[in-house]
Structures are given as structure tokens and as C-alpha cells.
Design a binder for these strands. Structure first.
Lengths: 177, 177
DNA sequence: GGATACTCATTTGAGTACAAACGATTTCTG
DNA sequence: CAGAAATCGTTTGTACTCAAATGAGTATCC
């Protein structure tokens, strides 16, 4: 499996941010917003990258494959459309991921009782074993990632991110509210 | 252009987080870390998604293409390896993006004076026009995205993210420090 | 009840993304 | 200075990703 974003020298943000400011100072830009947003994206990429390399690669799982297993673990058998939405991918993408996961016998398809258009998916026993082995490790890495923050700061970080998320989602082309 | 991550119903985080906690309560997990980290990733995806749909699509630029133009704008002509690192992608990926951008006459190749292995790239005049038209709009969207936070909170968000970024980078397979 | 409209998942086509292999070039070493 | 090692961008192979088109199935409307 492969999806990856290279970690970069650019992760030494502070100096880079100073360089940027120096270059753009006369452009009337909102540097505070720029700094916050770019760090969200950088941190998000770094986290995904780290998890893929340090953990998921050992189990030959992509980030998305892991996410799908996790969704099915938490919420149980779900229709594909719902799984796609929860995993943050389109239905089309999910079809491909399902093919991979099904080939590895980690998920199974469950045809809908009445409506033959619909398909639900669920974890196989092997799928349950997989996620129950991987997730605690995943969580350990999460703990490590925020270990530079106090618990109060971790709560504050989550709170601020939820605000950004809410605002961005409210602007987007879907979910007009 | 295409790379995209679907925004999802899952952006209504609070209820989802409660559901998760209910399911996993006896697994001895660090929910605070989980909440912080998953929101970083969700917010990062939402931001990228939003920018691609609401802004970059109008100029037929992918996120990565935009990032490359931005890097070249800020730091001027650079060797490909350096651009890839700054943009957070691999050299292989950059080759493909360069092909697209060069076909649109937004960047140009500059062969190295002595070392024929090396190639630098830089913005063409059309490339400069493009980024100077797009970036102020991009920044406006950034401002909007954090408009639910006070300026102090925006600074705090950036600070906390830098701490996470620093920690994650320090663990990674590269940059062992 | 038969055409029409709708709603699902899937397929398609193009672009993005990685690691690993490669070829061209430069640098190091004996 | 010739062969080995290192370094650079590119190519290759596989997987992910989206939007849009497609196909299968269901619901509506007259």
C-alpha cells in the first residue's frame, strides 16, 4: 500500500513562517490566519504520514483502509454510502478500498434485505482481530503525538479545531449550514 | 484536476465522539489524545477540500500544483528536490506535477550551470500572474476559516499545532531529532 | 401497469501519491 | 585516472482519489 505524504524539512515551521512574512509584508495579508491554517494542514499530513509509516505499514494497511475498518468497528455493519461519509471519502473510492479489504477477507458484503441496490459491509472475524490489534497501538501513537501538550492544551486544541471544522463545513458546497 | 476528500456528516464531531467513547470505554484508551489528533486530521482534510472546491477549481489548480507555485513564489527558483521537500511531496510526485504545470506554461525548467543531473524550476510570468491572483483569495478563505476564533485563539491554535508537528516529526523515520 | 424519474453502487478516466528501480552524472578512492 | 559509490531527476508499478457516466433497481405518476 502506498498513499503517503513525505515529511519535509518544511516542518521546521518557525523559520519558514518568518521568511514568508518577510517576503509578503506589503501584500496586506492575514498572517495569523495563514499561520493557523497552514499548520493545521501540515500537522494533519504529518500525523497521517507518521501513522502510515510507523504503524499501518507493518500491517499492510493504508490510512483509508484503516479508517474503514475503524468505522465498521465502532458503528457496526453499515451501508456503503454511510461508511464513505464517515470515512471522509466518496462512494467511488470506497468501492476500490472495499475490493482490497474484501480480497484480504477483512470485510464482508451484506446484501440488503429488500432493496437490491443497497449493500452493507461489516467486519469479518479476521477484520475484528485486525482492528483490535491495531487500534490500541494507533492510540498509543496518538498519545505520543500530543505528549508535548498538557491535557488542558489537548482539550483546547480539539476545541479550536472543532470550531474551524464547523466553519469550513458550513461554507462548503454541501451541508449548507 | 481531481484530488479531493469528501466532506462528511462526520464533521458533526461531538456526537460521533460520544458514540466512540461509549463503544470503547473499557479498552483503556486515551480519548483526549484521540480527540485532538482525529480533529487535526479532519480539519486538515476539510481545509484542503474546501480550498480545492471553493477556490482552486476555478483556476483549474490542484492543491499540490498551488503549493508548488506558492513555494516558487516565496522562495524563487529552486532545485526540484528542495521544492518537493517544501511542498511536502516526493520527488517522483513532483515530476508529474511539473509536467502539468509546464504544459500550462506556469513554470519553467532551468538547467544547472555545471551539474547536469540537477534541474531548477521557477515561475514564468504567467505563473507569477497566476499565484498573485490566487493567493490573496486563498488568504481570504483562510481568514474566513478561522473567523470563529479570536485572534488570540488563532495564535494559540498555531502554537499547539507546531508542538504536535515538532513531536511527530521528531519520531518519524527521517530527521531523527 | 407502463413510461418516467429517482436512488443506489459501481465503473471509468484522469490526476495524485508513494516506494523502489533506473539511468545519467558527478564525486570519491585507491 | 579508472572503477566504485553517491546523488540527482525520472520512470515504473500499484494504490488512492475525485467527478462524471453508467447500470441496476425502486418509486412515482398518470
Amino acid at each position: 500500500m502506498s498513499r503517503r505524504i513525505a515529511s519535509s524539512k518544511a516542518t521546521v515551521v518557525s523559520q519558514a513562517e518568518r521568511d514568508i512574512r518577510a517576503r509578503l509584508d506589503d501584500h496586506e495579508l492575514d498572517f495569523t490566519a495563514m499561520s493557523a491554517i497552514s499548520n493545521i494542514y501540515r500537522a494533519g499530513s504529518a500525523v497521517r504520514n507518521h501513522m502510515e509509516r510507523s504503524l499501518l505499514a507493518d500491517y499492510d494497511l493504508s490510512w483509508v483502509a484503516f479508517t474503514v475498518l475503524w468505522v465498521l468497528w465502532i458503528w457496526g455493519e453499515q451501508e456503503t454510502g454511510h461508511v464513505a461519509a464517515e470515512a471522509g471519502i466518496t462512494k467511488g473510492t470506497l468501492t476500490g478500498v472495499m475490493k482490497t479489504l474484501q480480497a484480504r477477507r477483512l470485510i464482508k458484503r451484506i446484501p440488503h434485505r429488500d432493496d437490491r441496490r443497497r449493500v452493507s459491509i461489516g467486519l469479518t472475524k479476521a477484520g475484528v482481530r485486525m482492528i483490535e490489534r491495531v487500534f490500541p497501538e494507533f492510540n498509543t501513537h496518538e498519545t505520543l503525538a500530543v505528549s508535548g501538550l498538557t491535557v488542558a492544551e489537548q482539550h483546547e486544541l480539539a476545541r479550536l479545531l472543532r470550531l474551524v471544522l464547523k466553519k469550513v463545513s458550513s461554507i462548503g458546497p454541501d451541508e449548507e449550514a
